[in-house]
Design a protein around this nucleic acid. Structure first.
Lengths: 126, 126
DNA sequence: TTCATATATTCACGAATATGAATATATATA
DNA sequence: TATATATATTCATATTCGTGAATATATGAA
């Protein structure tokens, strides 16, 4: 199989993994370091199982790595630069006049929020 | 709706559009300039309608723009830098020891193939 | 003009895949 | 043990995919 077929397929897989709002937000929330599932669930405001399932997708595709500590499981980015690369892709949302103004201003906000490393919150360790 | 929700959703949409091998290859093949549907179909080695349908997805999501000329429809990237950004993302495939050696060498090849602008082939114009 | 051809898009269908919600199971800690 | 936490499984639904047929649309020839 030609190299470009292999890579196109694998890249498409990576894009597929990232083509979900929850999972994108998880990646961005992990940009500053590891977090446990509960902490992520609260940040996302979705159900526990949904968080866990999306983390499983990310883990199976080697986007995140887990570290168990007591009854907590902490997740972190396997390749922290991934978060910056994703954020960089936001510029392609600005295109086109058809794009809503709401989106354009949201981009500015998100660049503030996601654009700088953040010290992980409430990291309960034991 | 918080900015990060909006952006996560839109970004996820973009990733979804790009989460298909054919569409990724189309974007990369267009890095050097416009091509008509037939030319793309031959490059990809897939059916005509499949090519056209994937172009429609890219078009509806403002990734590509069409230009009609006679009986040909030429497509080009709306934001040419998109191809470079995607190629940049290839580095995240190198990760992890579980990754097959075949992939690693394919990455090198693809960086050669996609890494430099290419002069569009056989552009039949009238 | 009419007809044949080349090009591109759209449609309909079944197959495959993804998704979300709910539940069940497993594990670690107290 | 009981409880909190995390993962796995199941199921119903929704979405996406690929193919082949049908439908434009444009061009050139008769």
């Amino acid at each position: 199989m030609p190299a470009r077929h292999i890579i196109a397929k694998e890249l498409a897989g990576l894009f597929g993994v990232l083509s979900h709002p929850d999972r994108l937000r998880i990646v961005e929330e992990l940009r500053g370091g590891e977090r446990d599932v509960n902490s992520l669930q609260e940040l996302l405001g979705v159900s526990h199982s949904r968080t866990s399932q999306n983390l499983a997708v990310l883990r199976l595709n080697r986007v995140v790595i887990e570290r168990r500590d007591g009854r907590h499981v902490f997740y972190r980015l396997e390749q922290p630069e991934l978060a910056a690369w994703i954020l960089d892709g936001v510029r392609f949302l600005e295109q086109g006049s058809a794009r809503a103004e709401a989106t354009r201003s949201a981009i500015a906000v998100v660049r503030q929020i996601w654009g700088q490393p953040e010290k992980p919150a409430t990291r309960k360790r034991r």
